[in-house]
């Protein structure tokens, strides 16, 4: 049904989106906690910066990543010299680009999930002898979990579909960085490639639908569990 190249694009896409979601979710939970619970100077500015990839053209995000994480950039240069690690034009780079673009969506969902936990429940836990880490682990995270899982699913779907930032920062190297959207684009450049493009598009659509339905189901489950 799928040619070896098409399989390769699908599996690479799933791996790239998987890593993007994993790291993105950890960062999203961290920042969501910080923004939801603490007041500090510059909070609004940080909030805006973290949402920037949502409103910037993805190509601009990719270009910004090149400037910072490219071999000649401040962080990329250090990584290359100190650890021998390069990100631009690598699968890890593709994951970084996809993750950065999906991050604001995960941040918003995580913040909502954490913010929805009734503070009175935390006060009750506190009066019963639970310290801050204890409360986070036994009360807040379990109650926020369905919403956080939904954040992961939405993030995964967004990372899977990311095009502009990935092609700018990681290029379109088959087997390395040519994820599904890039493979579809490449197929359309070739005469007679519409068949391949269509097949890949249907795969992408199927993955996206499964993701959205799973996300909705998780949110509904979370609402029922947290009732009263």
């Amino acid at each position: 049904m799928l040619s070896p190249e098409e399989w390769q694009a699908l599996l690479l896409s799933l791996r790239v989106a998987g890593w993007a979601t994993f790291w993105g979710l950890i960062a999203a939970i961290g920042f969501a906690w910080l923004l939801a619970r603490h007041r500090f100077p510059g909070r609004i500015l940080l909030d805006a910066l973290l949402h920037a990839p949502l409103v910037l053209p993805p190509v601009v995000t990719g270009f910004a990543l090149l400037l910072i994480f490219g071999v000649e950039g401040p962080v990329g240069g250090w990584l290359d010299r100190a650890l021998g690690v390069r990100l631009a034009f690598t699968p890890a780079g593709a994951a970084l680009a996809a993750g950065v673009c999906a991050f604001p969506l995960m941040l918003r969902a995580a913040r909502q999930a954490i913010g929805a936990v009734d503070p009175a429940l935390e006060d009750a836990a506190r009066a019963l002898g639970a310290g801050p880490v204890d409360r986070a682990v036994t009360i807040v995270l379990p109650l926020a979990a369905p919403g956080l899982l939904a954040a992961a699913v939405v993030g995964f779907a967004a990372a899977l579909g990311e095009f502009g930032a990935v092609i700018t920062f990681a290029a379109s190297i088959p087997g390395e960085t040519q994820t599904l959207p890039l493979a579809i684009y490449a197929a359309l450049q070739v005469p007679g490639g519409e068949g391949a493009a269509l097949r890949l598009s249907l795969i992408a659509l199927a993955v996206a639908l499964v993701g959205l339905i799973a996300s909705e189901a998780l949110l509904a489950f979370g609402r029922r569990r947290a009732a009263r």
Binding site: A120, L121, D123, A124, R126, G131, A226
Partner: peptide, 20 residues
């Protein structure tokens, strides 16, 4: 002492039982 170490039981109008 911080609240979690005072060993003071607290019950409100609403029970605030942990729903999960």
């Amino acid at each position: 002492l911080p609240a979690e170490r005072r060993r003071i039981g607290f019950v409100h109008q609403q029970a605030h039982l942990f729903p999960h």
